[in-house]
Nucleic acid binder design. Sequence first.
DNA 1: ATAAACGCCTGACGGC
DNA 2: TGCCGTCAGGCGTTTA
Length: 279
Amino acid sequence: MPELPEVETIAQILAGTHDAAVLSVIGCEIQDVSVLWGGTLANQEPSDFIARVKSQRVRSVSRRGKYLVFTLSKETLIIHLRMSGDLRLEKVTDESGAVVPLHKHDRLALVFTDGTRLAFNNTRKFGRVWLVSDTKEVLENLGPEPLADELDAKHFHEMLQQHKRQLKPLLMDQHFIAGMGNIYTDEALYRAKLHPIKRSNTLTKEESACLLDSIRLVLQEGIRHNGASIDWVYRGGGFQNHFNVYGRTGEPCPICGTQIERLVVGQRGTHICPGCQQM
DNA sequence: ATAAACGCCTGACGGC
DNA sequence: TGCCGTCAGGCGTTTA
């Protein structure tokens, strides 16, 4: 699934602030809703959702962790793409006036009065949509934004000291810090030369500061490349061409030449350079 | 407190 | 070609 850089890219594209943006949802009024798979809705029945969301207008689009946040006239629409979710903003009809068909695995579609449509494609049905009056209902327990200035090295070190957990599962815990997923965690730990199962409370101040820098570096680089396009989901991003360890099992480490190893940490495939990342 | 195991889903890929 | 196991950008719940 998309991680912070992919979600950030999608948010910017939908908001029309991205270089690659063609359409924008800002100002669009919701005219019609198709709930193609009811399980998509996390907190209500399709009929309630449709009745409440119709005729609301999109005021803004932003990101919090891996959540997309659509501020509407009266309420807030929140989308989490999970593993296989994607969003397409497109015209409902083509140049000849023919209706553009929805895709296989589209689970929800919002049709706007200006003739555009936002389609939520979600192959594995893990993604969810919420409609809430208060974003706290969904976002309250998220950890800090890794790229925010309020998070400094001192505070991050204290956060790490408060747990005795393996670094990788801790970084992927959205209550600890919001937005890190499997790819960017592997890449950040590699850059910081830290082993994924090293205990968080054993890091020195210097190591904590280096880890925070590494997290920010890989996330910024991911955003700069419009995220990664892997598996069968292609969103136009190119960060997959800049992975140092993720998915590179058996290839030489760019720094020391040792073969990249794959292990399992926290039930997730994990990629490390055994030469650079020692316990 | 920490972490493993499992469930939720569909599809791609490699081996036989 | 088909079948089977494994793996996949996530996360909540249950169990140890």
